[in-house]
Computed example of a mutant assay.
Amino acid sequence: MDFDWNTEIRKQVETHWTAQLRPRLAGLTDDEYFWEPAPDAWNLRADGERFVADFAVPPPEPAPVTTISWRIGHLVVVLLGMRAMPQFGGEPVDFTTFPYAGTAAEALTQLDDAYAAWMDGVRRLGVDGLTEDTATEGWPVVAIVLHVQRELLHHGAEIALLRDLYRAQSPSSSNSVS
């Protein structure tokens, strides 16, 4: 029996995206986007005319709590950008120079665009392309695809939880960063 693994792999993340994650991001405000749920949280911060992401190499132990803005940036740049672009022929993306979004609306546009590029790239692989070796890390393409999609599910759930926690805060206890 012929089985289209590419379609099945895409359906898993497409179902999550359309039925769970993307609807949970509707109405995201700038205050939520930059809200720091814990002291010393990693965030996106204004640096002159652009926003930059907090990071350290290697990351501290334990890793800091991160904001919605940081997590969306991570999805756009590291997962859907840095992983996808070498595989799918797009422009290289780097987390130190990326033009991170300064508003929630801009971030959602970046996320939508990165997700669409990722899904288009996976679709173009077909079944045969999934079994090829990658130039990065010596993994087969399917391992990269599954890793990125697993991380998208994982970080998407974290973003949804942060939205729930933000909503549960009393107005006087919210800590916004602009």
Rank of each mutant, 00 (worst) to 15 (best):
D2P: 06
D4M: 12
W5T: 10
W5L: 15
R10S: 06
R10A: 12
R10I: 05
K11Y: 11
T15Q: 13
T18K: 12
T18C: 12
Q20I: 09
R22W: 11
R22S: 11
P23Y: 15
P23T: 10
R24V: 10
L25C: 05
L28Y: 04
D30W: 05
D31T: 04
D31G: 09
E32A: 15
E32I: 04
Y33E: 07
P37V: 03
D40C: 11
D40T: 04
A41Y: 02
W42Y: 04
W42M: 02
L44G: 06
A46C: 00
E49T: 14
E49A: 15
R50A: 11
R50Y: 07
V52N: 00
V52C: 09
A53I: 06
D54M: 06
A56C: 01
A56P: 00
P59Y: 10
E61C: 01
P62E: 10
A63W: 09
A63S: 08
A63D: 04
T66H: 02
S69I: 02
S69T: 00
S69V: 02
W70T: 00
R71F: 03
I72S: 05
L75A: 00
V76G: 03
V77G: 03
V78E: 03
G81I: 00
M85E: 14
P86R: 08
Q87G: 12
G90D: 06
G90A: 09
E91R: 10
V93W: 07
D94L: 08
F95A: 09
T97Q: 10
F98K: 00
Y100Q: 10
Y100L: 09
G102C: 10
T103P: 07
T103L: 03
A105H: 12
A105W: 12
E106G: 12
A107Q: 03
L108F: 11
T109F: 00
T109Q: 12
T109I: 05
Q110I: 00
D113S: 15
Y115K: 07
M119R: 14
G121C: 02
G121Y: 01
V122L: 09
R124A: 14
G126P: 08
G126A: 04
G126W: 02
G126K: 07
V127P: 06
V127I: 05
D128N: 09
G129M: 09
G129Y: 04
L130C: 02
T134G: 09
A135Y: 11
E137F: 15
G138D: 09
P140S: 01
V141Q: 10
V141Y: 01
I144F: 01
V145K: 01
L146I: 05
H147P: 00
V148D: 03
V148E: 00
Q149H: 11
Q149S: 05
E151G: 04
H154F: 15
H154M: 11
G156A: 13
G156P: 08
E158F: 14
I159K: 08
I159S: 02
A160I: 07
L162W: 04
D164H: 15
A168K: 08
S170T: 07
P171G: 12
S173F: 11
S173A: 15
S176Q: 05
S178E: 11
